[in-house]
Design a protein around this nucleic acid. Sequence first.
DNA 1: TTGTAGGCGTTATCAT
DNA 2: ATGATAACGCCTACAA
Lengths: 341, 341
Amino acid sequence: MDQVTIKDVAKEAEVSPSTVSRVISDSDQISFQTKEKVKNVMKRLGYQPNAIARSLVNQRCNSLGLVMARPTDRALANPFFTDIIQGIAAGTQRENYSLMLATAESYQRESEEVLNLVKTRQVDGLILMASRTNGELINNLTKENYPFVLIGRSQKYSEIPRVDNNNIKAVKDAVTTLLSLGYRDIVFLSGPKDFVVSQDRLQGYREALLEAEIPFRPELINYADFSYEAGFKKARQLFSNYQQNIDLVFGADDLLALGALRAAEERGWQVPEDIGIIGFNDTPAASLVHPGLTTIKIPIKKMGEKAAQMLVKIIEEESYQGEEIIIPTEIVWRESTAQKE
Amino acid sequence: MDQVTIKDVAKEAEVSPSTVSRVISDSDQISFQTKEKVKNVMKRLGYQPNAIARSLVNQRCNSLGLVMARPTDRALANPFFTDIIQGIAAGTQRENYSLMLATAESYQRESEEVLNLVKTRQVDGLILMASRTNGELINNLTKENYPFVLIGRSQKYSEIPRVDNNNIKAVKDAVTTLLSLGYRDIVFLSGPKDFVVSQDRLQGYREALLEAEIPFRPELINYADFSYEAGFKKARQLFSNYQQNIDLVFGADDLLALGALRAAEERGWQVPEDIGIIGFNDTPAASLVHPGLTTIKIPIKKMGEKAAQMLVKIIEEESYQGEEIIIPTEIVWRESTAQKE
DNA sequence: TTGTAGGCGTTATCAT
DNA sequence: ATGATAACGCCTACAA
């Protein structure tokens, strides 16, 4: 349990500490024999280099910081949180880095946590989740030239190392396909206006309609919180207002779509016969409900892995400044949509 | 961006480095005036103590390690993962510690990750998730007297610092209440046999029946993977085998219960009229399905917080060796169960 | 009340 | 091919 240091090994192997250090870094200017000898002693004593001491002299701690404001996960729904963390953790380890995780109960606190990690030198770089309020923070980090990678998109500053999916394209493609299936009067149930994801997904909807030259009906665009209840209420209201004049609900998030599904059920409408429903994110619940919810799936885990990988590259490669990586999405067809008659 | 050190502050404030150090630790043997003077300089230069350097001299890094095997989260379902991490993160921060997160793709790798964190001295203590295969690891840590806290229960070694819920009691209480509602022929849909949670929940079921002197029907106990599909298949089979001789399904996890719900629906059985269903964990989906699933809710986040808190106490208080903290559960009544006629 | 010096465990530079 | 030495940034006796 007591710390075995490089000195202990040196003494035991009857060499100097520097020799041991060289063995650790597998220096090639050291004889095979002493290498073996030292390695044996290391094994025998159970020696492991002290990461802290290393960090101090190397001025690098080999760890990445992940800071998440808790409101973010509420906004983005739970599974996102799980998968993104798993992805980041996996990517981090693959690069032989450690991951420091900090959560914050507000965006305000998020900035503080970030600054704390950075200034106390506990991490070599940061992974951040895009949100509507951390633009300032991101701006500062950019100015300071501090290594970081953004997951998602920040409205104002687009030339930033980040990994994201293309929400605009994903929705546009989905809507285009739905139109080709025969749907025409598509309600768009958006998330809150001030989220970039909301705006992007809505734009995809608009572009698809435009391209298909479908007349645009502003009343079909509706905003709600990213929640089941909000989706349910809004859909109920829409269903009673527009009756026969709608044939599909596009939920900007599965929760919204699930709420709409429930509203349709309550009204006695058959899905997909009377109304089609599609969501976004492929939450676990999407495959559990009945009928199964057609939805758009983001390979979230992969995004996390890519982010970690890119961050390490930024840290280690002097000349590399990062890039924008867009991960393709995929439509998961289930029973809540169908070819129209 | 360049590191401001204690020396810079010292020079600027025209004192010695040790004085600055004393100001940082708010030593009381230092004059108010120099304290102020130094503090001002620190603020002006944007000084933050280097956590790494501190760790090296203090032989303590003020950070906790959380190691999770990814199979664990699959077994325990997603929301658990999210909440436990959030709870641990929150608790860790409240104690002014940092959190290092490592995930592993197997239990084998889990041990390696743990050992790595420990031996390289990157953390002062560990939070571990109980699983059927990490008994050895836990045993070793105990022998080494290394600070750790277990979340959940390890079969073999019970006298261990841990926080858990009482699965036996939770199920027993629920079943007892269900019996008082008029249910009698209760199917128990257990998770895999080798999980401690499975065994405990099953035992709760047994104890309740025993106490109520309900004759025991071994054929009503069934095992399945913790998954929706497994629950669905098993329930379908049970429903066709036992027809009128069952009136409730107790799923050892919500996913199992949700599968059973679906099986009932497929069969055209009304829930709760024809058959009652109850689950465990209160997954988000439990409130989204129709009828809403009655289930047992564990305050997971609080468990995480407690674990972090306790671990810090173990680390910091010489005499404190940890304890067993049992967090009470709560039954969430929804529409899938009802008072029987 | 403040300063000096040595050390935490490692690496890197300069000798040898 | 190996060893001595200084440094990384901080803390803490011990001295003054």
